[in-house]
């Protein structure tokens, strides 16, 4: 038979620091636990594909080997590009929105790089996700695989930064750097 009070466990002598640390650990674990409810969503794409678009660094090489666009990837972002019912300003906004969507899906890479043909190739699916924001057979793409304005002149892409791309149309005179050029941003 024992006499006197039982010696409490050291942790129970001062429970407050112990439980504070426990709570802090729990909060940290909750904060850093991988979550599946975030990530950019591509228009007209199944959510599972959009989620996979967020992670890899995929487009740093503008000359990476062509990959066939995935048949499931159907984007309607370029549907109104060069449409008779719109104008060049709307066209430039469409191309600008396509670039924005591209950046959303490749946040580590920013804009596609290179000249018009390389940028067009990237936007038509030559990227690791086979993400074709412009259908490869779009009427705005010429025989040299360049994206053209409504007068048939390739757009001029001016990379100011990884997230800023000026887009220039030569306008109806089809001659760059003249008064009728239209540029986004103006």
């Amino acid at each position: 038979m024992t006499s006197g009070r039982a010696v409490p466990h050291p942790l129970l002598k001062r429970p407050l620091p112990f439980f504070t640390a426990l709570v802090a650990l729990a909060i940290l674990a909750w904060y850093f636990w991988p979550r599946s409810d975030v990530g950019p969503v591509v228009p007209n794409r199944p959510e599972s594909q959009a989620l996979s678009a967020a992670s890899p660094s995929t487009t740093s090489n503008p000359n990476s080997k062509p990959s066939p666009p995935a048949s499931a990837e159907v984007s309607h972002l370029a549907d109104t590009l060069n449409s008779p019912s719109t104008d060049i300003h709307a066209d430039l906004r469409v191309v600008g929105d396509i670039l924005t969507t591209f950046r959303t899906n490749f946040p580590h890479d920013g804009n596609p790089v290179g000249d018009n043909a390389e940028i067009t190739a990237t936007l038509t699916g030559r990227n690791q996700l086979h993400l074709a924001l412009i259908p490869p057979g779009h009427a705005a793409i010429n025989a040299q695989h360049e994206l053209c304005d409504r007068w048939g002149t390739p757009f001029f892409f001016h990379a100011e930064s990884g997230t800023r791309m000026a887009i220039r149309s030569a306008g109806p005179d089809k001659k760059m750097w003249t008064a009728d050029d239209v540029v986004l941003p103006p």
Binding site: N111, S161, G162, R164
Partner: peptide, 8 residues
Amino acid sequence: PQLFSHSD
């Protein structure tokens, strides 16, 4: 990254 881009 971002070859051909000014600021980068």
